[in-house]
Simulated scan of single mutants.
Amino acid sequence: MRVVDAFREAYGAEPAGVWHAPGRVNLIGEHTDYNDGFVLPFAVPWGVTAAVSPREDGVIRIRSLQAPGKDQVLDDPDRAEGWARYPVGVVWVMRERGLPVGGADIVMDGDVPAGAGLSSSAALEVCAALALNDLYDLGLERMELARIGQKAENDFVGMPCGIMDQAASALSQEGHALFLDCRSLGSRSIPFDLAAHGLQLLIINTGVHHELADGQYARRRRDCENAAKHLGLASLRDVTDLTAALARLSGDERARTQHVVTENHRVEAVIGLLRAGAVQEIGALLNASHLSLRDQYEVSCDELDVAVESAIKGGARGARMTGGGFGGSAIALVADDRVDRVRATVAGAYEERGWAAPEFLPAVPAPGARRLA
């Protein structure tokens, strides 16, 4: 295992253990997690692997095989820079909570495709949280590790994300999607065996990231919070009469509310279809989700729209953008015998516009975070 070899080279000793946490793709339920809503993600085969040993002096030594020559030695977590702020933020949160977490020697290796929007940040956080939980015998449950990862990203990194990404990384099961109620944090695994139905879920990685994304993400969250406040509700999850709610709102707040409420309904509808074995029928809900994200939530972009539209033109049963938006990936539900056609149609549409070719990846539900050695 190359992360172990790198640990030996860096620190001249064997690591105390090796842990892995995956990235995620979201089947449906976008921008609903921070509105106390419903989501249906699953873990992907790519993620972050870490070799870790504890230290008695409180110092954190950390390196990434994706950032050679940029090792960081930290006597204070606040001094962490760049990618290291995600795992080091976990140390900061644990210490803030009074947990007995000392130092650590850490080497990390990741294989999440670049620019795909498959949440390598959550994988970094959950991997660090799981390793420290084991090494320092903290006894924390998986959901609590996810919450620590989320708090690290919210309060240490400064990204106001919801709980979905970290929960998917920490709790997912192989061959299943994870239904998560983001208010109660109750979850259950939903069987998601596309191969049995002659289907594939294809990730279309646009490879683009528009720089307005982070600021616009925070703005969308404020729109939702303001809409809930104007409606006198704790969150948009509590809207029971959408028509009446929309009549009391205007502009961006009205549009955001329409997306969140209908997206929650789509998550429930997809779960119903999966439980009934009607997997092929979820395509229409994926299409509706994309249109809502494009027109009501306004987080799509040309590259995502072309990926979705050309995938459907090529024969996909449904498609939508996935993740925060403004770039990253789309997903397409495709019959086995149409995969080549869909790939060719999407690639051709990109070539016509002079864009770099997209990357196509099979989305197979993978296991969640775990100790490897």
Rank of each mutant, 00 (worst) to 15 (best):
A319R: 09
K313C: 11
G315I: 11
D340T: 13
A319Y: 01
A311R: 03
I331D: 10
G323P: 14
I312W: 04
R320S: 09
T322E: 13
G328C: 09
I331W: 11
G328N: 11
I312R: 14
V342R: 02
R317L: 15
R338N: 10
K313I: 07
D337I: 04
I312N: 13
G328W: 09
G318F: 06
V339T: 11
S329K: 07
I312G: 04
A332I: 02
G324E: 13
A316D: 06
G323L: 14
A344Y: 08
D337W: 07
M321Q: 12
A319C: 06
K313N: 11
R320G: 03
R338L: 11
R338M: 11
R341V: 13
T322S: 15
G324V: 14
V339C: 00
A344S: 12
A311C: 05
S310T: 00
R320Q: 01
A319I: 04
V342Y: 03
R320W: 11
G315V: 08
G325C: 03
T322P: 13
V339D: 06
A332D: 08
R320A: 06
D340Y: 00
D337N: 09
T322W: 14
S329R: 03
I312P: 08
G325Q: 01
G325S: 03
G327Q: 08
G328D: 06
D336E: 15
V334S: 09
A344G: 00
G315T: 02
V342S: 03
A344K: 11
S310R: 00
S310V: 07
G323C: 12
A332P: 02
I312K: 04
G318T: 00
L333T: 00
R320D: 10
M321F: 00
D337C: 01
R317P: 05
M321L: 15
A330K: 03
G328E: 11
F326H: 05
G314T: 05
I312E: 13
A319G: 07
G327Y: 07
V334T: 01
R343F: 10
D340K: 13
A344I: 10
R317H: 14
A319Q: 04
A316W: 06
R317I: 12
S329F: 12
D336T: 13
M321E: 05
R341T: 15
D336S: 13
A330T: 01
A335G: 13
R343P: 03
G327L: 03
R343V: 15
M321I: 09
D337R: 01
V342F: 02
M321T: 02
G314C: 01
D336K: 12
A311Y: 00
D340V: 13
A316N: 02
L333N: 04
M321R: 05
R343L: 11
I312F: 01
S310C: 04
G314Y: 09
G325I: 01
A330S: 10
G314V: 06
K313L: 14
I331P: 10
G323F: 14
F326K: 07
R320V: 05
A330W: 02
R343H: 08
F326P: 09
R343D: 10
D340L: 12
D340Q: 14
G318N: 05
R343C: 11
T322F: 14
G327S: 03
V342W: 00
G323I: 13
A311S: 01
S329H: 06
G314F: 00
G318V: 06
G318W: 08
R320Y: 08
A311D: 04
F326V: 07
